[in-house]
Simulated scan of single mutants.
Amino acid sequence: MYFDKLAVKQNLSLSSLLEILSDVLYRYSKHDSTIEQPLRSILSIGDKQNALLNLPCIDSQLGYMCVKTITSFPESSPAIDGAVSLFDSNNGRLLLIADAQEITARRTATTSFLATNLLAISKWTDEQKRNATLTIVGCSTQGEAHLDVFTELFKWNKIYLWSRTTKNAINLQSEYSKKLNNIEIVEDLNDNRIQESDVICTCTASEQALISLKQVKKGVHIN
Score class of each variant (00 low, 15 high):
Ser163Pro: 00
Ile170Asp: 04
Asp126Met: 15
Val67Trp: 09
Gln61Ser: 11
Ser174Lys: 15
Leu119Arg: 13
Glu187Trp: 09
Ser76Trp: 06
Asp99Thr: 03
Ser22Trp: 03
Leu62Ile: 12
Ser15Glu: 15
Asp148Lys: 07
Asp188Tyr: 01
Ser29Thr: 05
Thr71Cys: 07
Leu95Gly: 00
Gln128Ile: 06
Ala120Val: 09
Leu52Ile: 12
Gln37Val: 02
Leu95Lys: 06
Phe87Met: 12
Thr111Asn: 13
Pro78Asp: 00
Asn181Pro: 01
Ile159His: 06
Thr151Asn: 09
Asp126Thr: 15
Thr165Asp: 13
Ile159Thr: 01
Ala205Glu: 10
Glu175Lys: 15
Asn223Pro: 02
Gln142Ser: 14
Lys214Glu: 12
Leu39Ile: 08
Phe113Trp: 11
Pro78Ser: 08
Pro38Met: 12
Ala100Leu: 03
Ser177Met: 03
Leu55Ile: 13
Leu134Pro: 06
Lys214Cys: 05
Ser177Glu: 13
Pro38Val: 12
Glu187Lys: 10
His31Trp: 10
Asp99Glu: 13
Arg107Asn: 04
Lys123Cys: 15
Ala209Val: 03
Lys68Gln: 02
Arg40Asp: 13
Asn182Lys: 12
Asp188Phe: 06
Phe73Tyr: 15
Asn91Glu: 08
Val137Ala: 02
Ile222His: 00
Thr111Ile: 14
Ala105Leu: 10
Leu55Gly: 04
Ser112Pro: 02
Asn223Gly: 12
Glu152Asp: 04
Leu53Ser: 08
Leu96Gln: 07
Asn90Ser: 03
Ser72Thr: 05
Ser77Gly: 05
Asp191Arg: 11
Ile183Glu: 10
Glu187Phe: 07
Gln208Cys: 04
Leu21Arg: 10
Ala7Tyr: 00
Asn50Trp: 08
Leu39Ala: 10
Lys9Trp: 01
Tyr64Lys: 00
Ile45Thr: 13
Thr110Phe: 08
Pro56Leu: 09
Val149Phe: 01
Val199Ala: 14
Gln128Trp: 09
Leu153Ala: 05
Asn90Thr: 02
Phe87His: 11
Ala98Gly: 10
Leu94Pro: 01
Arg40Gly: 01
Ser16Ile: 05
Ser206Arg: 07
Arg93Pro: 01
Lys158Thr: 14
Leu153His: 10
Ala98Arg: 00
Glu196Gly: 02
Arg40Lys: 14
Ser72Lys: 13
Ile222Thr: 07
Ala100Pro: 13
Leu17Pro: 03
Asp59Cys: 09
Gly143Cys: 06
Ala115Gln: 11
Lys30Cys: 06
Gly82Leu: 14
Trp162Gly: 05
Asp191Ile: 14
Gln208Asn: 09
Lys167Tyr: 00
Ala132Asn: 08
Ser44Cys: 00
Leu134Val: 02
Arg193Cys: 10
Tyr2Phe: 12
Phe154Met: 07
Ile45Cys: 14
Asn190Ile: 00
Asn50Tyr: 08
Ile45Tyr: 09
Lys167Cys: 03
Ala109Cys: 09
Asp88Ser: 14
Gly138Ser: 05
Thr165His: 07
Lys167Val: 07
Phe154Leu: 10
